[in-house]
Design a protein around this nucleic acid. Structure first.
Lengths: 200, 200
DNA sequence: TACCGTTGTAAGCAGCTGCTTACATCCGGG
DNA sequence: CCCGGATGTAAGCAGCTGCTTACAACGGTA
């Protein structure tokens, strides 16, 4: 069938690297959609079109898979995005379910995986702290970290409300409109003065 | 010990009503702390000091228990609270883990139980819509429902961030301070104009 | 061609989940 | 007293979870 003149990729039938990548991509999307605990290894393997035992061969555990997913495009891409665009980027990617191209889903993965227990704690905490310190600088206030946490909390809540309860009008709202409302309001959070202090 | 002059309660050893109530209270607290899916029937029964089979005798299913928990202090107490105090009341009860007295935990139960799937959907959706319409009136804007959703999303996110990831500084922050920041910021959400429209 | 590590597969493990069943025990009314 | 429904208990069900094991099949190398 295929002309043998093109040697390189040619769809190898047994390809560990490709299998790893497919698992990684399936896990990235599923974790972002359903959270860590809401995603089963069987579903990950199925979406990747791979036997689930291979997940454990290549990543050791479900937790190990999460670690690699987060490490993959996560911290690095975070550092490449200017802080003032960080929140809007994350919010927009959370509001649009397009999922095309290698977007930065790391914040989304983090926020959606936050639910329930210590299972996913360690790895995700690191990513969360990185985002926290990036956002903290946006407010001149000395409690910038707290304000950053509140902003992330809102992001988390919006994501859950949209995809999990899917309640109208939030679920079907125009992303631009939601973005405008949230970003406009958050501007005031950064500026809100501490009690007993003048502005910045 | 006890004078026999008071016949009525006297701690009956087999008391269906008391057992029901203990299960209800245990479930209310646990659902608020861990969410619906994060709470197992065995844990509920254990905290209530009751055999878990009785949970099914009295409520039919875990879902049935949730329905009664929500119906209990939920919608009724919601209607008794003026809308402008609703958000602050819910936020405060979420920020303080005191858990003393029969507080209105209904919004907390709702928000914490929102995670994952359709399991708890029906009953909780009703409660959520009641809160939504109550909050929607706070903004004069025609998209008040959307803004109400966004406010509830923030509440949900703050609760999850505090109890689940327990990340500093949000986890240990002074409730009054958090309250002030959030309420101050939300004031701007109610006032934020729609594009192409003047204020209200 | 014969070999052997790499890759893929099927089955099953223990532990958890919500829920059910069969059975003790209490206790008020006859 | 004693019977029978109400109440409480122990055990177990099927189905799910993350994970492991024993084995088959491929394919580069010697």
């Amino acid at each position: 069938m295929e002309t043998a003149s093109a040697p390189p990729p040619e769809e190898r039938r047994r390809d560990a690297a490709a299998t790893r990548r497919r698992l990684l991509e399936a896990a990235r999307d599923l974790f972002a959609e359903r959270g860590y605990e809401g995603t089963t290894v069987r579903v990950i393997a199925a979406r990747a079109g791979v036997n689930q035992a291979l997940l454990f061969r290549y990543f050791g555990s479900k937790r190990g898979l999460l670690t690699e997913v987060v490490a993959l495009g996560g911290l690095e891409q975070l550092r490449a995005t200017p802080p003032e665009e960080l929140f809007e980027t994350a919010l927009r990617s959370m509001l649009t379910r397009s999922t095309e191209g290698p977007e930065d889903r790391s914040l989304e993965v983090y926020l959606r995986s936050v639910g329930r227990g210590d299972e996913a704690a360690g790895t995700l905490r690191e990513l969360g702290e990185a985002y926290q310190s990036a956002l903290a600088g946006l407010s001149g206030a000395p409690d910038g970290a707290l304000r950053a946490d509140l902003a992330m909390a809102w992001l988390l809540g919006i994501g859950l409300m949209r995809t999990v309860v899917a309640r109208e009008p939030l679920a079907g709202a125009d992303p631009d409109e939601v973005c405008r409302l949230v970003l406009g309001t958050l501007g005031h959070l950064w500026a809100e003065p501490k009690p007993g202090e003048d502005g910045e």
